[in-house]
Every structure is written in C-alpha cells, then in structure tokens.
Amino acid sequence: MNAIDISNLDVWFGSGADRADAVRDVSFKVADGESFGLVGESGSGKSTILRAIAGLVPTWSGEMTVAGETLGVRRSKAFYRKVQMVFQDPYASLHPRQSVDRVLSETMGLHGVTDIDKRIGRLLDDVGLGPGFRFRYPHQLSGGQRQRVAIARGLACEPSILLLDEPTSALDVSVQGEILNLLTDLRQEHKLTYVMVSHDLGVVGHLCERIGVMKEGRFVEVLAVDEMRRLEAREPYTRHLLESSINSIR
C-alpha cells in the first residue's frame, strides 16, 4: 500500500504570460512507513510539491493519491487528520499571540478530540518539552523549542503522514541534531510516513531511505540512500550536488 502516489504532477503560479511553472511532470510513490527525501537548490520546486500535497497551492494538474484519498482542489477535514505539515521557519509558523496551549488545544478541538487537557500533556512530553512549556508564548521559546511545538501541532491529531519542509534549516547545528533525533523517534513510535524537503544532503541522508533529486521543477533522479552514501549517482547534476555537500561537511 502506498501512502503517497503522485503521477504527472504539474504546479504553476500565475496565469497567461506570467505563468511560472514550478513543478513539471513529477511522479513518485512513497510506501507506508517510508521516509522520502526531496533535495535540490532553492527554486527547484521541492517545497512546492509539499505545498501542493497539503493543499496550499490550488493551481496544479496531474493525479495525487495521498493516504488512500484521491485529491481534488479542496481537501476534506478527514484528510488533514491523516496528513500534516511542519514548516521551515519556526519563527514564522507559530502565531505570535497564541500560547502553546492555545495552539495545541485549537488544533485538537478542530479535529474533535475530547480529552484535550490530558492529551496536551502527553504531546508535550512526546516532543521533549514537558508541562512547563504549556502556557508560554512563542517569544518565550528558543528556535528549537518552537520547532518542537510546531511538530507537536503536526502530531496533535495523530496523522499517518508528516510533510517536513526543511524542518531544521533555520536552527543551529546542535539543535538540528536534537530535532532530527526527535523525528527519528517519533517516526518509530507512531509509524509515520515522512516526506522531507531539504537542501542539506546530510540531513536528508540521515532521515530518509530514498531521495528524489530535483532541478528546475523536474526530478533528475531518485536514489536509495545507500547509493547516495556510496556516491553512486548516475546524473552529473546529482554528482555535483553530492560533491559540494561532501566538501562542505568534511
């Protein structure tokens, strides 16, 4: 059973002469429980794919079947119970005027969860924050803590698929490690399927089993992580990417 099955996806912005194609003819499948990575430079369309799946970009064509649901322009509420997203910038993804408690309880309320009080406590434990953080406002949290709250929000309704849009690129390396470990643990615990976008091959290689390399809105190739580790890329573009990130890391 595939968690995500996408074929011939095109996504564009604007219309007529202003039309800019962000994603062109992309097809891929993600199995249940798999972790799939999307890498590429900025502007390669990797984030756009996630946003199209989540329903944040209405202008797309092709077929998308996600969590057993064939997607149209609108998404049902049931869809959002199964698919959630974590954004890149934890400083922009939390409402500046809402406490952690408010964010989580509203999310659960929307999904008709009843024992909200108990669940919030457990959720905060799950993401390693503890009850002391429950009534804090975003400006009282560090970047890593904010991202944990954002992850807790994503998990609040117990989805099966988590879309991760560069979840660590705005964080310090030391905090990045903590968040990546957290994502690894949560995936095991909750049997989650991940689709993760990143420009950092090290991060993607750490968390994902298969990696789609994107350039100018198209897939250049899809590699298994072992192939990537052995630097066995077929396409020159992928090889170039690999080389530059290997160099920058070691």
């Binding site: 329903g55 998404r75 869809f79 959002y80 959630q84 922009a92 993804s93 999310t107 929307l110």
Partner: peptide
C-alpha cells in the same frame, strides 16, 4: 501568507 495561517488551515479550519 504567513506559515501560522497556513498551519491552521492545514488543521482544516
């Protein structure tokens, strides 16, 4: 277009 508005929309609001 802030992410926190996207996020709440993704909760089905």
């Amino acid at each position: 277009h802030a992410d926190y508005i996207h996020a709440i929309r993704l909760q089905g609001a």
